[in-house]
Design a binder for these strands. Sequence first.
DNA 1: ATCCCTTATGAAACCGGTTTCATAAGCCGT
DNA 2: ACGGCTTATGAAACCGGTTTCATAAGGGAT
Lengths: 348, 348
Amino acid sequence: MRGKVGPATMREVAERAGVALTTVSRAFSNPDKLSPDTLRRIADASAELQYTVNLSARSLRKRSSGMLLVLLPDIGNPFFSLVLKGIEEGAREGGRVLLIGDTGSDATLADAYAGQLDAGTVDGMILIDGRVPFPHGSPARARLMRAPVVALSEHVDDPSIPFVGIDNRAAGRDVAHLLADLGHRRLGHIAGPAANGLTTLREQGFAEGARERGCDLLGTATGDWSIGSGQAAAADILSWPHRPTAIFAANDEMAIGAVHALAAAGVSVPGELSVVGFDDIDFAAVGSPALTTIRQPRFAMGRAAVEAVTARIEGRTTAEPARILPFERVMRASTGPLGSGQTAAGRG
Amino acid sequence: MRGKVGPATMREVAERAGVALTTVSRAFSNPDKLSPDTLRRIADASAELQYTVNLSARSLRKRSSGMLLVLLPDIGNPFFSLVLKGIEEGAREGGRVLLIGDTGSDATLADAYAGQLDAGTVDGMILIDGRVPFPHGSPARARLMRAPVVALSEHVDDPSIPFVGIDNRAAGRDVAHLLADLGHRRLGHIAGPAANGLTTLREQGFAEGARERGCDLLGTATGDWSIGSGQAAAADILSWPHRPTAIFAANDEMAIGAVHALAAAGVSVPGELSVVGFDDIDFAAVGSPALTTIRQPRFAMGRAAVEAVTARIEGRTTAEPARILPFERVMRASTGPLGSGQTAAGRG
DNA sequence: ATCCCTTATGAAACCGGTTTCATAAGCCGT
DNA sequence: ACGGCTTATGAAACCGGTTTCATAAGGGAT
């Protein structure tokens, strides 16, 4: 007697329950179409055999896998944590599971992942990475545009893809206004990577807000979103000929790095220098000093993105090209009014 | 003329290239078996049709999906970030992609995810959550044990599952020794959730180490790994009749929360109270004071876990039930020698 | 020239489900 | 008793690949 290999199949369940294969299939998809008696026999049989549906077979036939692909540049970035939780929850409610792709520094990797969309492995895709797979104008890109894809947090350079996120330019302006309201006139900026869309919008907004309030934007140091790059940027800023009295870092991690570097250099925050971050990650609240920042509704953003992509998958054409969510100022201890230790002209 | 729907299939590529379906299949799996000429014709044809392999069909036939399921309790926890990067990288090198399941607080969710293993959706599973799916002794659990599953970071209560991680008990002991070496004699502990395996090991190790060095473990406050729970725990400890001179928090987030709460209460760290964390997450290095902690080789742990699960998938029976990686002390500014402001007897 | 072996390709079975279409049974109204 | 309609079930086609087995062509060795 040869042992059976692998898990039980529908055919085996059917045999055991004394019904046709078809009937078992229906028991799992349209139970109300069957007589209670048959249904119970099938339930018993599949319990005895510990039967589970083979999803590859199902998705092959149904042309739908029940999976959502999430593409992000760095799983390690704490900004994504709550966003992912939102996506995860929304996906689960829709009966779908998540495939997560970390595109990292390798740009071609996104292409590889995106291929899964074509390959039928996934039903839809959420792009948290601004870099859209495939070069502009390529056939692959064109096809991608027609698939259920949503851009989250960061705009992509293709207008046909719906966007979910905040108004980053407005947020950048708001930071400048916030600092101007505290009396600051000499501002500095720690930006993200140059190629990044968020970098551009936040920087432009910040510059715009500074101009509106008659502030001087003395300069911009460039980081890469990491804590370490924030430290380096702060060191850079301290070497500027004219030192700002307030700095806006384009994310919280760089801001935290900057605060650390400033403290190490003996510069008091906010006594000598105010620092504002962006995102309001968990650690922003418990630094010392606690970080003033712009809160993004991360969880809600995740939810909105799944909702949008699900709508497209199910053909409910939401004629909604963008969903802009509100951001929020969070005032904490890393900012203060222009103090006595500082002059409007700075240290010069 | 009716328009074609959906992406191109192998049959269409074969037709266009003037070869048999079989040959196209081989062109994608065993290219060296074909003549250069045929290969080129197929390459051209599939490029023109923008053909991509349907992975559902492939995995149905091959009985392997090329996916790894990672089950963790909380994507938001920064401890996992580097671990996931390690897993991701290893999986990619093995030609596999990652399915990530956040089991959160819902214990039954793990069962749902684990069902995917049976369903053939995934080839293997990495459990970073100590709670193994399915109740002990159930047939489903038994079946799970036979599948390619590896426990990462936290032991599971089933000895048949290989483990990858550090020796948490030894690490807990090491923290006690570290503090004893600094002269501390009155210790406190902030533990993780009671049901958790890591909680137990670290706490037992810490108590053991304290005993070995003749230290008093004055008490244990319980948290849930979160920053907020660390703050609450610190407040609790300050209310103890006998205050310790050093605290060991079972992870960095609780330690950071504790440091914050202590600062808010006017207690200087490490002047009046030393604090040690666990994990060495990125933010540990840039707090003020920077956190003394135990570094886990997070990236290496991820790599080791994929390697182990891959070995099982591919049948290379690694007769290796556990892979224990080394941890490392990281001394920073949140600990100091028992100072003049403190007495060996504490404040009483 | 004959036989054997290798190499390139094709026909058909197969993976495990879903879905369409057919059929049998049961019920109703006349 | 009979035609028409609904309900429960089954047979077979189908999803898009992979794999086994067969076959034809080409190349030495004898």
